[in-house]
Design a protein around this nucleic acid. Sequence first.
DNA 1: CTGAAAGCGCTAACAC
DNA 2: GTGTTAGCGCTTTCAG
Lengths: 330, 330
Amino acid sequence: MSVTIKDIAQICKVSEGTVDRALNDRPGISKKTKEYILKVAKELNYTPNHLARGLAKGRSMTLGVILFDVRNPYFAKLMNAIEVKAREIGYVVFPIFTHHDPQNERKALEHFKTRQVDGIIMFSVQSGHEFEKELLDLKIPIVTIGNRISGGWTYVGINERESMKDAVKHVISQGYEEIIYICPPLTRRGEVNLYTLEERLAGCREGLSEMGKKEPLVIMDSDYIKAISQIDLESQPKKAIVCPADIYALEVLNHFKKNKIRVPEQVGLMGFDDIDTLKYISPRLCSVRYPVSEIGITAVNRLLEEIDGNHNKHLNVLLLQHQIVTGESL
Amino acid sequence: MSVTIKDIAQICKVSEGTVDRALNDRPGISKKTKEYILKVAKELNYTPNHLARGLAKGRSMTLGVILFDVRNPYFAKLMNAIEVKAREIGYVVFPIFTHHDPQNERKALEHFKTRQVDGIIMFSVQSGHEFEKELLDLKIPIVTIGNRISGGWTYVGINERESMKDAVKHVISQGYEEIIYICPPLTRRGEVNLYTLEERLAGCREGLSEMGKKEPLVIMDSDYIKAISQIDLESQPKKAIVCPADIYALEVLNHFKKNKIRVPEQVGLMGFDDIDTLKYISPRLCSVRYPVSEIGITAVNRLLEEIDGNHNKHLNVLLLQHQIVTGESL
DNA sequence: CTGAAAGCGCTAACAC
DNA sequence: GTGTTAGCGCTTTCAG
């Protein structure tokens, strides 16, 4: 077995309490005995047992993280920022990837409960009253990112609606008159949490309305490529395709390339997220950039404040700035 | 506080031991009391405390995972596979991203030790005797992936040397006579674990030698783009650039696009890893594909066998198949 | 089949 | 300053 506090206590002929005081430099111990204990501890290659400590203190120094899928570069960036920041302040993270499955999310929360995590950062799949009750029952501080749940939980992100509104206005300012909006997940309305996507769609509508343009054509088919190919994109007035995520825009772009449809000459294209991959792709996609890593870091910082109970309860929506990235696709 | 076994015991008027028997369906309990206890437990919304259980059983049901950086799509895929597989069998993972920093790796191992992880999957930054001694001192089963350490630890991956040899032979078979090999991390020789990259380079050399071609020109500058731009790529004989990672090849491709150097007409290009991103990029990069997710899954499975002590000690190198992906860049 | 009690390694409150 | 002791919640062994 590993060497424990008790072992050290025996060797140093002091009590476990004294060893504890030395190891965690708590007051009430003479410099001499402290140094001696530390020396012996080092010699024995002592390492504390975090399970025992967590049990005794009621704090596991662990954060749960719920995300959709790290293979999505956006989530990878978030995951990286969260892990690095958390570790910087002595925490370690348990990530669980739900892959958009509510069942996975439920199990993840249960895992976190039994594992005694001190807090949770969650990009949630679910929403609704029942879900909120579940979350409350956990009695664990939760910070939400991306998909908002309700005013009951802190939300860190961007102003989704405004950012898409700005994006659409930018598209219009480039001379486009009609917008085709692609968002397949919307077919799961009522089934999963679509806060982010609904907000973006609303922003698109608002932007168009404010610019005096007609409603967007919204495509929610999972096979949106097929849906697009049935539209006469070159008919007047000038059309642009707007996607609330770069990954859809890239699929569309691939389709266009394959069919020799030139962007932006024949049709405009706008993405969202400004994922790092874009730098390798031409034409450079217009997109919306926002500080993903900062969202992760902010979420961790806020979660810690909530764990320690010293947070501002009235300020629980933390929004960061977005920015339109002009490219060659409009 | 949360409801505990003790609470249930009091309410059911039985001992804690009996409750434990019911909850973990251990033998030696009557059907009746068991059902009663389970009913009460459900009513009270009891959730076990994993810290306490881990402490008592000496098993945390947790795996440590050490990777370079999830923002690299290759690691993201690996991370995803590991997390999903681990959870499937009741484990949860602690990932730590080293960003190629030995210091981070050292701290990660310490974290894992104090956190009592049952096993570790590691893509290591370090190597050497001293490091091996450190690993042995941990007394925790470790499975290595990517960068091999030594015969002392299980290695899951591909035959790095053969795969690059095959890649190079493919390049030559396409009519190229000279190879420019790009591998910036090699400048850190002696400082970090470069097993994978050294093997690939050796494979490149072997392949060329077997095909009767001359040695490759190896570029290790961190600013390899500048180095390339100083080479006359179009001089005879026909040249191809080979990269042991797609991410370098993409940077090179970007440079070529910017400078109107056509691939493959003016120069050939070959990558490695076949990252998902490639599907969006033209020309389609030739690359080497291997089952990344399977590597993760295999590593988890093997690690579990090692934890349970029922593994084949004589078979500790697990190699999966690679495959050349032909594209438009040669 | 059930209960009692010791122990996992560490913390914290209270004596001395 | 230092020692003692009672937990934290769960498992496990030994009686009965």
